[in-house]
Design a protein around this nucleic acid. Structure first.
Length: 623
RNA sequence: GCGCCCGUAGCUCAGCCGGAUAGAGCGUUCGCCUCCGGAGCGAAAGGCCACAGGUUCGAAUCCUGUCGGGCGCACCA
């Protein structure tokens, strides 16, 4: 059907074309401030003043005189230099509740989003929480904008950290007791503690530990300890799934190397004129890459890819991985790894896997998004730059379409977290506490509720996720219990509550024999007024919000919109006439108006649920 | 030193590819359940939008500089 905003812009353009045929500028249409006449307005007359050399109010009047207002718009008036539109309430709200406008990305692309990528050697902490939630929400938003999204989680199974944890088990001659044995601790937590203890033991027994860890690293590279790592990965996945995050694919570093992506990547780069193998100087024997042409101003433009001892740097492996994401290489095999809570399969790279399990093709992305904290900007820039200096058109294209979604760090009550030192707060601990607090409130507010555990989880974890998403990624977050788990104000529960309230009305309507389906026939949309228009205008923003949030990789815009919609709805719901009586009631309104309002409430309900879903937050129908 | 990011109400933040009187939440004060859910709503108080220049009909928004803060610049990741 019609998109009123789009139609308004088009009709303005048509009218402007008469006056200024050469005008190519932007024609904005925005919501009008509360106390000004009209619903939408445009300041375009200001912009035209320069070329037409006439006062903006005159131009506004001229445009209004020529304007053919589109359907759904009652009138256009010049208000000073602004051109304001009064909406036809019935037609406008009808358009909105029937979902006239849907998010639509400019072109559908295959987008690979890599996020989480927690070292497989300890439990995930609240710093990782931000990564997971940000990546997950971004993937959801991109999907809603119409893209094909593949979420990858990289497992650094050959790194030092994994080696240390695994070595710690033998070093301390201990073994994991299953939870039934009176030790309720998850495997990743248990292992993480050994990791921290090993760090301390290095002070007195450093050499032996160093030898042992190195040996484990070699065994990891040969893939001998895959099961040990897998055990941690599975424990961590429980945490991620509990947060509502799911993945399409686990990519193991050892597999990336074994598939030859490291070597192939290096081969591509070696053929470039930007890499060299100095025979003297401080880089003698190493393979270095000169990025000065692409990143001017660096003090040290030479990046070591392969050390003089022959070992590849981490960034070199990352480059191989990135090249594969972009579709330059093939040869990684996959198999099914798990079934996730939603029922969707999780695949993993595997030495014995198939290229196309269940007919699926991984990677080969048009667009690559790496969700990593801002401190990784330097290596991320190098990975991206490597694409630019590989002389391959696909790499060039991937260079342009690679993004580092950088987010600032999360501190803990003002202090930097450190997994190595054990200064952390685990996600598991936080989700348990969040759920506990939410449950206490639900019990108090809604004692008879049936699915109390499920609702408490939705509210508690929703609050956590929302807190991680509501402000821009480049903002630092200081994790504080009371703030993170707040159930009121600018929070997920605020939005969830608004949703539950809308559900409650629809339930009551159903009980009175009034269904949404039947309302569609009997609704008298023309009985609606300015209050409904105001609410519908917020609903009408939804498609643009999704589109720009996807384009700008900015989930916080969706979170802010969720608050706006909930506020608009709460405000409508509580509205009173001048004598102080409620004047927006649904069920007690006269027939016709009643059904029309019911349709609007249903649209609000859907809008809130959809918006929360983009953030990975559940919308309980009662709470 | 060089590079990136930040500076908006007491605190935490929206608003930033220029547009109407700068908006929320928390906190403070007052009011609202005879009304479909008070986890809510309404109102008050609280702002040289760090500072100084510039561009513009118009600047929190763009440009330059200054000050203050954070992060990054390894043959670590």
């Amino acid at each position: 059907m019609t998109d009123v905003l789009g139609a308004l812009t088009a009709s303005l353009r048509a009218a402007i074309h008469d006056l200024a045929p050469d005008f190519r500028g932007d024609v904005q249409v925005q919501e009008v401030p509360a106390d000004k006449p009209g619903d939408y307005g445009s300041p375009v007359a200001f912009t035209l003043a320069r070329t037409l050399r006439r006062p903006p109010p005159q131009i506004a009047a001229d445009i209004v005189a020529r304007l053919q207002v589109p359907q759904g718009v009652a009138a256009a008036d010049a208000v000073g230099a602004y051109i304001n539109f009064r909406l036809d309430a019935g037609a406008f709200v009808r358009g909105v509740v029937t979902g006239a406008a849907r998010p639509q990305a400019a072109e559908r692309r295959k987008v690979v989003v890599e996020h989480t990528s927690v070292n497989p050697n300890k439990e995930a902490h609240v710093g990782h929480l931000r990564n997971i939630v940000l990546g997950d929400a971004t993937a959801r938003i991109l999907r809603a904008a119409g893209h094909q999204v593949e979420v990858q989680n990289y497992i650094d199974d050959t790194g030092r950290q994994a080696a240390e944890s695994i070595f710690a088990v033998t070093y301390f001659q201990t073994r994991y007791d299953a939870p039934s044995n009176g030790s309720p601790r998850k495997y990743d937590h248990w292992l993480g503690e050994l990791y921290v203890r090993l760090g301390q033991a290095k002070e007195t027994d450093g050499e032996a530990i160093e030898r042992g860890v190195n040996e484990v690293m070699h065994r990891l590279e040969r893939g001998e300890l895959r099961h040990e790592v897998e055990r941690v990965v599975r424990a961590q996945l429980e945490t991620f799934n509990a947060l509502g995050a799911e993945y399409d694919l686990l990519v193991w570093e050892s597999d990336v190397v074994q598939a030859g992506f490291l070597d192939q990547g290096l081969e591509v780069l070696k053929n470039s004129r930007y890499t060299s193998r100095p025979t003297e100087g401080k880089y003698a024997g190493a393979l270095v890459m000169d990025v000065s042409e692409f990143l001017p101003g660096l003090e040290e433009p030479n990046i070591v890819l392969v050390r003089s001892d022959g070992n590849a740097m981490y960034v070199a492996k990352d480059i191989g991985y990135q090249f594969w994401k972009a579709g330059l290489f093939e040869g990684l095999g996959f198999e099914r790894f798990a079934v996730q809570p939603s029922g969707s399969p999780l695949y993993t790279s595997s030495p014995n896997g198939e290229l196309h399990p269940d007919g699926r093709t991984f990677a080969n992305a048009d667009e690559i998004i790496n969700v990593i904290d801002v401190r990784q900007s330097h290596p991320q820039t190098i990975v991206r730059t490597a694409l630019a200096l590989a002389e391959d058109p696909r790499a060039q294209k991937a260079h342009e379409n690679s993004h580092h979604l950088a987010y600032e760090v999360v501190t803990l009550e003002g202090r930097a977290m450190s997994g190595r030192k054990g200064i952390t707060l685990s996600i598991d601990e936080v989700t348990v506490e969040a759920t506990r607090r939410a449950r206490a409130v639900v019990e108090e507010k809604n004692p008879g509720l049936a699915d109390i555990d499920e609702v408490a989880r939705a509210v508690g974890i929703g609050a956590l996720r929302f807190g991680m998403l509501k402000s821009e990624a480049k903002r630092m977050i200081d994790f504080r219990w009371n703030q993170a788990l707040s159930l009121q104000g600018d929070s997920a529960p605020y939005v969830q509550y608004a949703h539950a309230r809308a559900c409650s009305i629809l339930r009551a309507a159903e009980g009175a024999g009034l269904s949404v389906a039947s309302a569609e026939e009997r609704a008298d949309m023309d009985a609606l007024g300015p209050l409904e228009v105001k609410l519908a205008q917020v609903l009408a923003r939804y498609p643009r919000v999704v589109e720009t949030a996807a384009e700008e990789l900015a989930p916080h815009q969706v979170a802010q919109y969720a608050l706006d919609l909930a506020t608009a709805w709460n405000s409508y719901y509580n509205h009173k006439d001048t004598s102080g009586r409620p004047d927006t009631q649904v069920l007690k309104a006269e027939p016709g108006l009643r059904e029309a309002r019911l349709l609007l409430v249903d649209a609000v309900r859907r809008g809130l649920a959809d918006t929360l879903d983009l953030l990975g937050i559940a919308a309980p129908i009662e709470m």
